[in-house]
């Protein structure tokens, strides 16, 4: 399913001891389309607004202006309950950092989106994902016993478990070695080829070889890398 951002922007209020409260523009008016079957790679310096843009695209942070459409559905016109259900069904979001729930095992963390939806989990697909990401031996381990890279792969499997139509990955390979980085990018590419629209926010230069489209974020503005 196509995900379209139409003129979205975001400002934050920032506390500053010297200047008091002031407005900070995280993302300037931006339009972007994530086509089904494609991988879009977004790069940029820290603080350039990549994560904020990803959160707006994922229905997690309402833009100050513009709208985000999944197909014909305006995400932010939906009430929270419906938007959350849509996010559970159609989006696979890989946030930055460690995001596992500590009371659950690795396998249960992966299956959490299925548990939330109340639908029967596809255990065979979970097994397949764990094998692809080389974490099947860790299925019963608690997050406290896992390394940063292992937790990262659990988050990636969790994002893919419901076969979503949109994948939004924020630094998915941040804690991974070269081999696992290749595996993850390969898996995301395969997911796109199966019909999903994939956005990868990354600092990895290798990601370019998997990209169908590339963008760069600079001071809240989206530019294509070869643009002047």
């Amino acid at each position: 399913m196509r995900l379209t951002a139409e003129g979205i922007s975001k400002e934050y209020l920032r506390e500053n001891a010297a200047a008091g409260t002031n407005r900070f523009c995280a993302v300037r008016e931006t339009s972007l389309t994530l086509e089904p079957g494609t991988v879009t790679v977004l790069t940029g310096r820290s603080g350039s607004g990549k994560t904020t843009l990803l959160h707006m695209l994922g229905g997690l942070s309402e833009p100050g202006s513009g709208r985000v459409l999944l197909g014909d559905t305006d995400l932010y016109a939906l009430p929270d309950k419906q938007r959350s259900a849509l996010r559970n069904r159609e989006f696979g979001i890989i946030p930055q950092g460690q995001t596992a729930l500590h009371s659950l095992t690795a396998a249960e963390n992966i299956l959490l989106p299925c548990y939330l939806s109340g639908e029967k989990p596809d255990l065979a697909f979970a097994e397949e994902l764990m094998q692809r990401l080389d974490i099947s031996a860790l299925r019963d381990a608690r997050p406290a016993a896992l390394s940063g890279g292992e937790l990262r792969r659990v988050a990636i499997a969790r994002a893919l478990i419901r076969r979503p139509s949109v994948i939004l990955a924020d630094e998915p390979t941040g804690d991974l070695d070269d081999e696992n980085t290749k595996t993850v990018f390969g898996l995301l590419k395969e997911t796109a080829e199966a019909g999903a629209a994939v956005l990868i926010v990354t600092h990895e230069t290798d990601a370019a070889q998997y990209a169908d489209r590339q963008y760069r974020m600079q001071s809240g503005a989206l530019t294509e890398p070869d643009a002047p």
Partner: peptide
């Protein structure tokens, strides 16, 4: 808080 934020990311509503 972070765990609840993750729950929201994977589709838990405010009410849930």
């Amino acid at each position: 808080k972070r765990e609840f934020a993750v729950l929201r990311v994977i589709g838990a509503s405010r009410g849930a």
